[in-house]
Write a protein that binds this DNA or RNA. Structure first.
Lengths: 345, 345
DNA sequence: TTGTAAGCGTTATCAA
DNA sequence: TTGATAACGCTTACAA
């Protein structure tokens, strides 16, 4: 591999001079610069970033620790990170924990998880990355599972931390659910049921609050028998919708807190001979790719994944540059994506 | 940041000794080893891999250049790469070209593309990765767009190269189409139409061959009016299926060469009042996530993405270790995934 | 078994 | 405007 010394020799200058033309550190005569550039080109020289990093104590690469790249939210977040990184000359060192593959969504294996995270963060430190972005797979509190004393700036996205000093980028669950509910109300619905995810999850909680607040704002009493608790999976959407449809007073619309359950919900309605949305409107959450392909297509809340990646990277850049950050916790808005599963009442 | 020198001083030994216990380079007394380990732990020392890499001229990280991480095939391939890398202590430096975002599937912008690739590969070289895996977004020949003289081992996956010295990992399009067609034949169909992708694409070509060979093997004459050329998008599946259904002699089954067109095809059939699969069977290709959520679920050929990642990484490891490789071109088999869009005739 | 010291390819200080 | 050289943190002869 050709190195700076070779260039220097060939061009008849010192390594210092070569380094200066390479980095535009100024103070080098035009003719010398031309000569050096020429030789660099001729020998097809590529500067060794490892050596440079060692010297300047900065790698210009950021670590991205993803709990699982195969989960639907992750690729778009990474894409957003990339968009900013690319424009800033930053590289991405990717660590894929493969958590979903290794332990499903059973986050109770805290010790195992702690171990994995500890290794992943250590690896980033050893590789001297300038900062780290952590991408969760399900929005939840990761505080008791992340290592203590990480000697680098970290931004957490698609997950929370209970430390108010941590930097996080998320979307606004409460507001999104409010908007979803409001869309149903705007469409003339008053009997609006809710199919929630597992009860002790942050999104379930927040989204329920949004649902309730929307009903209140529009003077619609919350009917407890309209609130069902599922487990985020298709089957629970199906089963709970059947329960809802067995009620003496049936809902005219259902807010399912994710697209998977919305899909189950649609199937249950169809199964009862009901037409969606003519007989009953159903709205989902997440804007999973498949929700454009169901019959009918699912009206849903779209999570700003790409933007979450961008914001995370923006934040991390500021942290790396040691600049002041006004807001440590960012919440982005979701967009209502209208398809065919909701109609006017 | 604490370094080897600090450990040495604190433990009262030389840096050489510390290095030896760190790397198990043997020849160090048990009591000294214990003492050193103790100090390392106490000072929470993390070896600087940059310095190490510079010295040993090996980074133990591989570069992954993905044309677009948001395209459906890429995350699973990366996951496969990761599984092997993780077990081998290899890091992943990720370069996301974002090609789909930047130029759609218009691969005619060769010059722009060449430029992007040249930068990406150069960046990997500068970062001294030990080898590179290139992940395409659509199976095609990338020969005239990849840089010349890459001074590192490279494995190409989900794309081809016309250089017989290059290493590639792909799936067997011809065989997969053969299997798909055979499944239709096994189900009693004889009037089997084909909706192909754009004509000058490798998968279209190969899959057509598989379709033809299956018909031949089972003594079914190929009916030219049953062969339609689409563009991989939903709409073309819809339109071409309408054409097929307007034929005097209609097919009883359709092989759509991707799930998107299969979806369009199903919609066209439904639109004509036909029931899928009772009136007409439709089989897709790719096993996109959404194909489990359509009505009916799409029977399709599942691409071994994860395994492609694994094989690519296996191959790259051998190349890095300078070991002999018997097969430069690997083709993996796809699996038939039965859902509800095909029935016995 | 342990220590000394050169060197990996850069950058940057200081002197010329 | 240019060059000589120490230093970044580690590994690894080689010597003790």
């Amino acid at each position: 591999m050709t190195k700076i010394k070779d260039i220097a020799k060939q061009a008849g200058v010192s390594t210092a001079t070569v380094s200066h033309v390479l980095n535009n550190t100024g103070r080098v005569g035009e003719s010398t610069r031309q000569k050096v550039l020429e030789v660099i080109n001729e020998l097809n020289y590529k500067p060794n970033k490892i050596a440079k990093s060692l010297k300047i104590k900065k790698t210009s690469t950021v670590g991205v620790i993803a709990e699982d790249v195969t989960v639907f939210n992750t690729p778009d977040i990474i894409d957003g990170i990339n968009e900013i990184a690319e424009n800033s000359g930053l590289g991405i060192l990717l660590s894929n924990l493969r958590i979903y593959k290794k332990m499903g969504i059973d986050f109770s294996q805290k010790e195992h998880m702690k171990e994995l995270l500890s290794i992943a963060f250590d690896e980033m430190v050893k590789n001297q990355v300038d900062g780290i972005i952590y991408i969760g797979t399900y929005t939840r509190d990761v505080t008791d599972v992340i290592p203590a004393n990480i000697p680098l700036p970290v931004v957490y996205t698609y997950c929370y931390t209970s430390n108010e000093l941590d930097y996080t980028v998320n979307y606004d669950d409460e507001f999104a659910a409010y908007e979803a509910t409001r869309h149903l109300i705007d469409s003339g619905h008053k009997e609006i049921a809710l199919i929630s995810g597992i009860i002790d999850s942050i999104p379930s909680h927040e989204r329920f609050n949004g649902y309730r607040r929307a009903l209140m704002d529009y003077g619609i009493p919350l009917n407890p028998s309209f609130v069902k608790t599922g487990d985020w999976e298709v089957d629970s959407g199906f089963i709970l919708t059947e329960e809802l449809l067995n009620l003496a007073k049936k809902p005219t619309a259902i807010l399912a807190l994710n697209d998977l359950m919305a899909f189950g919900s649609i199937n249950a309605a169809k199964n009862r001979g009901l037409h969606v949305p003519d007989d009953i409107s159903i709205i989902g959450f997440d804007n999973r790719e498949f929700s454009a392909f169901t019959t009918p297509g699912i009206t849903t809340m779209s999570i700003p994944l790409h933007q979450m990646g961008e914001k995370s990277m923006d934040m991390l850049k500021l942290l790396i540059a040691n600049r002041n950050i006004d807001k440590k916790k960012i919440k982005l808005h979701c967009d209502l994506l209208k398809r065919e599963s909701v109609s006017k009442k």
